[in-house]
Design a protein around this nucleic acid. Structure first.
Lengths: 193, 193
DNA sequence: TCCTACCGTTCCGTTTACGGAACGGGACGG
DNA sequence: CCGTCCCGTTCCGTAAACGGAACGGTAGGA
């Protein structure tokens, strides 16, 4: 596995592409960024082109200089794409645990069409949806709510619930699932990729 | 910079601690995980103890075998901690761009005490706050709103605004900043931190 | 008690990521 | 036209991350 520099399962040069994009976004030359980040030009060049397998330290030096967290260049391929039905795509952004509950945050897209159903979750789970664009009709199947851009919906998801885009514009929203502590079940089940 | 193995600005052995925790959580021995992940025991041992500066490839091999995304072991120390005033901590979780806007999502904690002020952002920026625990009073300084667990606040943040915990319980919430596209200003200007 | 099995760490030779310097190429200015 | 500047890539010696093997320590079984 440690044979070819370019990759090894993980799409290594994807990281390079992101870094190059971020660098050019800021109008920095390779030489300049390398100097600011305190790494060699050869290193940065190889990193961006995916011909090297960077050290965590190197990667951090560069991303820190770019002003983004490490996750910004790694999150893409590591995300866990989920599809409920075919027209509802939800992408896991982050999981974090507080003293009282575990949270899963998703970015969500609902395409126009018939309502998409989602089965009941464990007891105590609540869903929080904030709509960014489009109009969403969602919630328990027997009494869903409607939300437009900037609006917010919330329900306990221990009953079957549905998602639908109102009108022909796709809906973009964030979805936050809140699992009371001690819940969450097995975690290794839904491994990415 | 590439001198001492342990770290170089980035808290490297924090990553090791997370990996060790994840491994033990699953009841795996170091030897077993090393074999499963296809890395040497020496490598994994050094990684967990923070005495090495792992390659992205190595780190991925291990996290993939543990069934977690790379971000799960990096998110902590790689996050950009922000302090507005002293009692409001906001941690950047994710930045993503849609067709119409750029979003920055923060996890937020407000400690009890006097209201914390935040200066105005660019025109068109909106803030969306969802409260998980505690009671938050926040919004434009002249007419803030109040939200309890599960509740939601939103305002346009082109005027000075404030955050305050109501009562003596700290507030935990998510904060979403929405920058209209083409805005974002000097990319590094309005960066948190 | 001794033997075996497995644990995690350490030793060590090999592989490779590292930064500095050299390089070719394009963009201006004299 | 040529000198200068900066771009990004390539060359190369050095430093260090890599995996395999050897090591000490702890259980559990014969």
């Amino acid at each position: 596995m440690a044979t070819a520099p370019p990759a090894g399962g993980h799409d290594a040069d994807q990281v390079g592409r992101r870094i190059r994009a971020l660098r050019e976004e800021r109008g920095l030359s390779l030489s300049t960024l390398a100097r600011l980040a305190g790494v060699g030009k050869a290193t940065l060049s190889g990193l961006e082109n995916g011909t090297r397998n960077p050290t965590l330290e190197t990667l951090y030096a560069v991303t820190a200089q770019l002003g983004v967290p490490l996750t910004a260049v790694l999150s893409g391929p590591a995300e866990t794409p989920t599809v409920r039905g075919a027209a509802v795509g939800a992408t896991l952004l982050e999981v974090f645990t507080d003293t009282d509950a575990t949270y899963e945050l998703y970015r969500m897209r609902v395409s126009p069409g018939p309502p998409q159903l989602s089965p009941a979750h464990q007891a105590g789970v609540t869903e929080h949806v904030t709509v960014f664009s489009g109009v969403l009709r969602a919630g328990p199947v027997d009494h869903p709510g409607t939300a437009g851009p900037g609006e917010y919906l919330r329900w306990t998801s221990d009953v079957p619930h549905s998602y639908a885009a109102v009108g022909d514009e796709p809906v973009r929203a964030s979805l936050l699932l809140r699992y009371p502590i001690g819940d969450q079940g097995g975690r290794s089940a839904a491994r990415p990729e």
